[in-house]
């Protein structure tokens, strides 16, 4: 293989790797979603103290998914992980009515950050299997997602525990990334 071929291969491999950020309040279910994405068992998950990272293969892409702990005290560290993110996945505990406002404010702050500008946003309305869950439509309204400008977004109802809806969210991510890279090439 010549040097040029090697470089070309390296470049195309690079393009096939995606950096995905998984953020949200503590107890939202981020790690359960991470494990569900990786088709791993979701029993006995310990509260995340730092971060977890997993590589997941999906339709020829290698997704590097970063799941960062969500306690109030460690949220200021989220920004250390923003750089070069291809997709932001924001996880919401749909049953946590007490903290709907708090999770909305955190999301707002994330979306205002320059490093995440234009990054596609997938919101997982998690824990839909539970009795007190608010429907995804209600959460979308509460978060004012309709008013978002300059960003592709989607809200997906899911239950990471039951493994429902997570793959549908991932499909949206893949579709969005594919169309984004196509439009980039056309430019």
């Amino acid at each position: 293989m010549g040097l040029l071929d090697l470089l070309r291969k390296l470049k195309s491999d690079q393009n096939k790797e995606l950096r995905i950020l998984l953020l949200g309040l503590d107890n939202a279910g981020k790690t359960t979603i991470l494990k569900s994405l990786a088709s791993e068992e979701v029993t006995n998950i310990t509260p995340t103290q730092g971060f977890n990272v997993k590589s997941v293969n999906s339709s020829g892409f290698k997704l590097n998914v970063w799941d960062i702990g969500g306690q109030r005290r460690i949220r200021p560290y989220w920004r250390n992980y923003f750089e070069n993110s291809d997709v932001l996945i924001y996880v919401i505990d749909s049953t946590d009515r007490k903290r709907m406002e708090e999770t909305g404010l955190e999301l707002e702050e994330l979306l205002a950050d320059e490093k995440l500008s234009g990054v596609p946003l997938l919101v997982f309305a998690n824990k839909q299997d539970l009795l007190q869950a608010a429907p995804a439509s209600e959460i979308a309204e509460g978060l004012n997602l309709q008013t978002l400008r300059g960003r592709t977004w989607q809200i997906q109802a899911c239950s990471a525990l039951k493994g429902e809806g997570v793959q549908d969210g991932l499909e949206w991510v893949m579709k969005t990334v594919a169309s984004k890279s196509k439009s980039k090439k056309k430019k």
Binding site: D129, T152, Q154, A157, E164, G165, T176
Partner: peptide
């Protein structure tokens, strides 16, 4: 056009 289509997810039935 693509975006508009994306905003309306197909009506899939979930257990909930």
């Amino acid at each position: 056009k693509m975006k508009a289509k994306d905003k309306i997810p197909e009506k899939k039935q979930y257990s909930w």
